[in-house]
């Protein structure tokens, strides 16, 4: 066992790191789903746009300005998407909102294609995160160690925020019962905007960490991590934040172990197989609450 761990240390570390990055994206999915009952297909593309903003910002500005700029720009983008594409459809059937999300995803990808000219854009190396370190014989980048710690810190802050602040309480109320919370005087639109802001902020942090491991960003590079993070959210029980984090770590680690075993083709398929199994066996996920259908 120890021998196995030692030889596969690089994959394992990578898995934990990727898992943390997925977790940061997955929280965005799970919170939006909890509040709006919407699979925000555009979330993965928001993540990709954050990567592109970082690339363009660093060509013009020093690192200490561009990183906050990326965070702000992503948050603004998420806010605007909600405002323009989801709010007008608040009373429309759920499927129309989902189609709108797919449309936004298509729009963001095509805009990215237009601005990048279809060429892969080289991601800048962030000073501290890109340094390499050696842990137990496995050489890796600093980001591998920073990611899980940062993820856990952010998740704890988020959970505290949801538990003790007024806006957090409102979010929980809205995800419990949309109509009743409206009757209780909660400003629904503000709560939904706040959800998108938090989700996009975490996605921006995730993109800073994720793309440090990759050399470049292309318009479709957000799609796969986005889908996997969604799988993680479903796996953990959609609507539950600890569930999403645990699901994301499991998927990240399993995926990298599969890569280590030489089955790279199936590393993406694995996530989806896991999704289908969990939907068959326990559709509410590990931590999900059981929903009852009223006739």
């Amino acid at each position: 066992m120890i021998e196995f761990l030692h030889t596969n240390m690089a994959y394992l570390l990578n898995g934990i790191s990727v898992g943390g990055q997925y977790a940061l994206i997955a929280i965005g999915y799970t919170m939006v789903y909890g509040v709006l009952r919407l699979i925000n297909f555009a979330h993965g593309d928001v993540f990709m746009v954050a990567g592109l903003v970082m690339i363009y910002a660093t060509t013009a500005m020093p690192m200490y300005i561009s990183i906050p700029l990326v965070l702000v720009a992503t948050v603004v983008l998420g806010f605007l998407i909600e405002r323009a594409a989801y709010r007008p459809l608040r009373s429309a059937p759920r499927m129309s909102v989902m189609i709108s999300a797919i449309g936004v995803s298509y729009l963001l990808q095509n805009c990215a294609l237009y601005f990048t000219g279809g060429l892969p854009q080289v991601y800048p190396s962030i000073p501290f995160l890109s340094e390499s370190v050696t842990i137990w014989g496995a050489t890796t980048k600093m980001v591998t160690i920073v990611t899980p710690i940062l993820t856990l810190v952010l998740v704890i802050i988020l959970v505290l925020l949801l538990k003790y602040t007024k806006i957090g309480m409102a979010m929980r109320a809205v995800s419990k019962d949309f109509e009743a919370s409206q009757l209780m005087g909660i400003k629904i639109d503000m709560v939904i905007s706040a959800t998108f802001v938090i989700g996009c902020f975490l996605a921006a942090v995730g993109s800073l960490l994720y793309f440090t491991n990759y050399s470049s960003v292309i318009p479709t590079s957000g799609a796969m991590p986005g889908l996997k993070a969604f799988v993680a959210a479903v796996f953990g029980g959609i609507g539950s934040i600890p569930g999403a984090v645990i699901g994301a770590f499991i998927i990240g680690i399993c995926e990298n172990i599969i890569k280590g075993l030489g089955w790279t083709t199936f590393s993406d398929a694995f996530s989806f197989a896991l999704l289908i199994v969990i939907l068959m066996v326990k559709p509410t996920g590990i931590f999900g609450e059981k929903a009852t259908d009223k006739v």
């Binding site: 919407l38 199936f266 398929a269 197989a273 999704l275 289908i276």
Partner: peptide, 29 residues
């Protein structure tokens, strides 16, 4: 057989997942 028991968005994401699995299988060396 397994997928059609799911409802609305879960069905969407499960069929999407199967499409990705099919693609992976066809690309398998």
């Amino acid at each position: 057989i397994p997928v059609l028991r799911l409802k609305s968005d879960y069905l969407a994401i499960a069929t999407l997942g199967f499409a990705e699995i099919i693609r992976a299988v066809f690309q398998w060396d």
